[in-house]
Amino acid sequence: MDFRNARARQPEVVRSVQKDLRYTNELTEDLSDLLRLTGARNWIKYNQLCKLLAEITYHGFASVSNLQTLGEEYVGIIKVDSKYKHIPTRFVQLIAIILEFGGETLYIHLLQKLEVYIEQQENILPDAKKKLISCIQLMQHSPNYIKALHKSLFYLHSDKYQISKRATGINYVLIRHWIQPEFSLFGYKILGVITFLQVSISFLISAFEMWKEHRRKQYATLERKSSKTIIKHETEVESVTKAPQCVLCLEPRTNTSLTPCGHLFCWTCILEWLDERDECPVCRETVKKSNVIQLQNFL
Rank of each mutant, 00 (worst) to 15 (best):
N25S: 05
R90G: 09
P244M: 01
I163C: 06
S239G: 10
E119F: 05
I201C: 11
A167L: 15
L185W: 05
L110C: 11
R166V: 06
R224I: 12
M139T: 06
V64M: 00
C135Y: 14
I87P: 09
T57W: 13
A6V: 01
N5W: 05
Q120D: 08
D33W: 12
N66P: 03
S158M: 02
P126W: 04
A62S: 15
E100V: 07
E236Q: 13
F186A: 11
L125H: 12
I201S: 10
L99C: 05
V282W: 00
V64R: 01
V173K: 02
D81I: 04
P88Q: 06
I56M: 12
K217Q: 13
L174M: 14
K85E: 14
K225N: 14
Q48V: 08
Q245F: 07
F3H: 14
I293D: 07
Y58C: 06
S65W: 14
R176G: 08
A207N: 12
A40E: 14
G71P: 01
A220D: 13
D81C: 06
L264P: 03
R176A: 13
F154W: 05
E115A: 13
S164Y: 06
V287R: 00
V92D: 08
Q137L: 09
L174C: 13
M1P: 04
A220C: 04
R277M: 05
V92Y: 05
V116E: 13
L67K: 15
L111F: 08
G102R: 02
K225E: 15
E55N: 14
I124S: 00
I205S: 05
K212G: 04
F265K: 03
N25D: 01
E104P: 05
L37C: 11
D278G: 02
V292S: 00
I179N: 10
R277L: 04
H141V: 07
G71L: 03
W178M: 10
P281D: 00
D159K: 05
S257V: 02
I146E: 00
L138W: 10
L49R: 10
C50R: 01
L248M: 10
A128V: 13
R224G: 07
E73N: 07
P11L: 06
T168F: 02
E182T: 09
K217I: 05
Q137E: 12
I78E: 11
N291C: 07
P88E: 02
S184H: 02
G103S: 05
E234P: 01
N291L: 08
V240N: 10
E12H: 08
Y46E: 01
W178R: 11
C280M: 01
K113D: 10
A128Q: 14
W273D: 04
R90F: 05
Y58S: 05
V75E: 08
V282D: 00
E279G: 03
